[in-house]
């Protein structure tokens, strides 16, 4: 079925009361294109050759950590508890507020 929902700071609220037989399920959500942040901010790029060998080595070291964070396999962990989900929601609220203010995270 199709229903209308309001998105607010990371939470979806249904416009009419509904009860579910399951606590957990997947659904499709239709999001208006215009609210999705697409444009990547661009910054002036510095030519790496401006820096000394030590600075370049340090940049490379930091980049390697970043690359590993994206590629390394993550071990299985326990499901989140309700408390942990609430904490996520709290920080999502912070992030949302900052985005609304046009600030970076």
């Amino acid at each position: 079925m199709q229903v209308e929902v309001i998105y607010h700071h990371g939470t979806l609220t249904f416009n009419r009361p509904l009860r579910f037989r399951q606590a957990h399920f997947t659904m499709q959500v239709d999001i208006p294109e215009q609210v999705v942040e697409t444009e990547e901010v661009s910054f002036p790029a510095f030519d790496l050759s401006l820096f000394s060998a030590e600075v370049r080595a340090e940049i490379a070291r930091l980049e390697a950590i970043q690359r590993l964070a994206i590629s390394q396999p993550v071990p299985k962990v326990e499901e989140e508890t309700e408390e942990q989900r609430l904490r996520w929601a709290a920080f999502e609220l912070r992030n949302e507020t900052r985005r609304e203010q046009g600030r970076d995270l």
Binding site: E40, V41, S42, F43, P44, A45, F46, L48, F51, S52, E54, V55, R56, E58, I59, L62, E63, I65, Q66, R67, A69, I70, R103, D104, L105
Partner: peptide, 27 residues
């Protein structure tokens, strides 16, 4: 600031300059 530490941890738009600034600062 938090945004700089995040830049260092996760590759995103601001990262290249934050990385360079921090590496330069250390040197």
């Amino acid at each position: 600031d938090v945004n700089i530490v995040v830049d260092l941890c996760v590759a995103r738009a601001g990262s290249p300059n934050s990385l360079a600034a921090v590496a330069l600062a250390r040197e």
